[in-house]
Nucleic acid binder design. Structure first.
Lengths: 406, 406
DNA sequence: CTGTTAGCGCCTTCAC
DNA sequence: GTGAAGGCGCTAACAG
């Protein structure tokens, strides 16, 4: 609707349409801002604002100062056109300045940047992306349980790589619920993310097939995707665990326990496979007696270790499937005074002080690799899918170097 | 440029403009997709795709299959209009379905949803936001060092709250460099984020004043913003530390050491103030002898503690400014066998097992509070700024309950 | 080196 | 209950 406000005298208004009026309002704004700027300059150095008790009001969006006979002032964002008008050029020229097109006279560029600064202009990335066929510079990373520190380290690595190329990371979590994965992912895809990195949670990522065909790279992190052709970055779970067990068997251990909960996940299944393989290599074919595999969050690793040590034929060494299991094993072993060797999967803080040997890996590096893969795919979408394995390494700190006591 | 392709015979083409051609190509696409769908259905259940060695090619964006005399097929995303055409309605009706407008016949809605599904339609959030005056549903969170687990827990809390209302979190880091803060933040603001949460790193956030006036809520997390009127969410640093020191003085401690590096940051300055205050309450006015404050990342907390214990008048208790200092103190104290009481700020994993008393807080709750505050501000931008303090609590585990030995 | 025109995909306004 | 026209802020294509 026409606000009914037109500036100046003379010259009849040809079209009193919406656009026209908005422009007028923005014209007012142009004047306003010059005033504002002085004001801001004086505000810039508000000192002594303490932490508590200060009362300050957020600026209301509409400042209906009718006292000077002016209409409602809309504090809207400056656009290319506003800047262009102030600089006395066309919108396209301003656009060129912001897209780093070299074809602008230094002098013109200067004038434009000055005008932009005065209007506090900031290019609207959304509009740009829309015009450019939905090419945003955001990449989505979808994780399960957002509290898991592992994922955050991975996220750190991803963000680090993406930032190098000016991409930003949209982080979303599915709360570890398989059903919400497609929901969350679809919402992100609607934002036209340039690539999708995800820790597959749902049993099946085939719902992404269409998106992949449209050219959005999909990269599975930490576990491979199921029913979807996608790149992936995973840890050397199997090899890492096999190496750990080999280091134990080299010391003479044959009765090696494996503790894990959950145990059905891809990563843990792989680690279990590595464990079995290494024992098979020294002739131990039957390992189930020393395996404590559960998939019930109620069951603590402590109880799993207890059941292992209290059994008729207790192991002389224990390897754990993950961080949490290691902590549990550690607590349980400390209570007893058993000379049981222990190697944990995943490193943790203070492990050095406690002398715990672990299969360490670098989650940040995992993220970096995933980020780099995403960037490569963005640049060249075609080519065979790849799976990158991030190496693990054994860090000997004592607990894993105890020879069999029995 | 006109692609030169026009479908069918009869009927002369009135305007052979770009738009026209694109529409034609999309018409072709409509046919193509039906074929694709069958194909996809058969692809859906690719089984047995192993982790490594599988070769599959990403679909090239252009499929120049000229063999059947067809033009380049553009695998573009389906739009409202495409869905509308397939469903035999106007684009607006489809739009209504997706904006949950009730004014659509159930039958029509059904037909539209069916068409949308067939075309794998996903509403373009960018375009929607643009049209709606730049109201996105993303909120930015800017942190310093992305590896700091504390920030990730905060991020977790924020994301958790935001997700409840359908907002997604854009996470960016400044790499702890004050100069890059404005750069990163400005880039995010160009994405028209609905609110900005940040851990202030730069010495001055006055550059955000304009944005705030445009109605974007700014929320400072963990530290207050400088030179900017903004809401903030911080820990009860001062009170928490004061309580810790009081628990020590209650046991008779008077010589209490304070170890921190860095020490000039807001949070640490607050904790230091709490420490001094609590000692002043029991008549200890001169505390600098027992303070080890540094701002050099080269200096380890271990060395700080060492210098404290090796001094002529060593403290009988130590409080630490943060996690890292606690670890250092712990390592150093373990090497000696001194009966020095220790209370750390920040809880950490295994602190229970090691019997370390701490001033604990909940970073996830800090994030949640920040997220809720952001949501409130989005809904009602005006009103006085607020500072929320997240309570801390002392967790007694033994190390802090040792009476003075000398 | 700069300007003009049209349109990205969607939604608002208004008409039927 | 549905449709047609126009524009959000920007840039590609073309023209000068």
């Amino acid at each position: 609707m026409d606000t009914g406000f037109h500036r100046g005298s003379g010259g009849h208004v040809t079209r009193a349409g919406t656009r026209q009026s908005i422009r007028h309002v923005n014209d007012v704004l142009l004047r306003e801002w010059s005033e504002d700027e002085r004001e801001v300059a004086s505000i810039r150095r508000i000192r002594g604002l303490g932490v508590r008790g200060d009362i300050a009001f957020h600026a209301p969006r509409f400042n209906d100062d009718m006292s000077r006979g002016r209409p409602m002032k809309i504090q809207s964002r400056a656009t290319l056109e506003d800047v262009a008008r102030l600089a006395g050029v066309s919108a396209k020229t301003v656009s060129r300045v912001y897209s780093n097109s070299p074809r602008v006279l230094p002098e013109t560029r200067e004038r434009i940047l000055d005008a932009a600064k005065r209007l506090r202009f900031r290019p609207n990335t959304l509009a740009r992306s829309l015009r450019q066929g939905g090419k945003t510079d955001t990449v989505a990373f979808v994780i399960g349980d957002i509290r898991n520190p592992f994922y955050f380290h991975v996220a750190a690595g991803i963000e680090q790589e993406l930032a190098k190329r000016g991409f930003t990371m949209l982080l979303a979590s599915t709360g570890d619920s398989p059903e919400s994965e497609p929901v969350v992912v679809n919402a992100l895809l609607g934002q036209l993310v340039r690539a999708l990195l995800l820790i597959p949670i749902a049993g099946d990522q085939s719902y992404l097939e269409g998106e992949r065909q449209l050219g959005t790279p999909v990269i599975a992190v930490d576990r491979p995707a199921t029913d979807l052709v996608a790149d992936s970055v995973v840890l050397a779970n199997r090899a890492g665990m096999a190496d750990a067990v080999r280091s134990l068997t080299a010391l003479g251990h044959r009765k090696v326990g494996f503790v894990s909960n959950p145990s059905e996940m891809y990563t843990l299944a792989e680690r279990l496979a590595g464990y079995r393989q290494a024992l098979r290599e020294v002739g131990v074919l039957e390992t189930t007696t020393w395996e404590r595999l559960d998939n019930d969050p109620q069951i603590t690793p402590e109880s799993q270790v207890r059941s292992l040590l209290d059994s008729s034929d207790p192991p002389t060494a224990i390897v754990t499937g993950n961080n949490r299991a290691t902590m549990g094993a550690l607590r349980e072993l400390r209570e007893r005074n058993d000379q049981v060797a222990l190697i944990g999967f995943d490193d943790f803080e203070l492990a050095d002080m406690l002398g715990i040997s672990v299969v360490a890996h670098d989650p940040v590096e995992l993220g970096r690799a995933a980020g780099r893969l995403a960037l490569e795919r963005i640049e060249s979408p075609s080519g065979p899918t790849r799976t990158i394995e991030i190496a693990t390494r054994i860090v000997a700190r004592g607990s894993g170097e105890i020879p069999p006591s029995r």
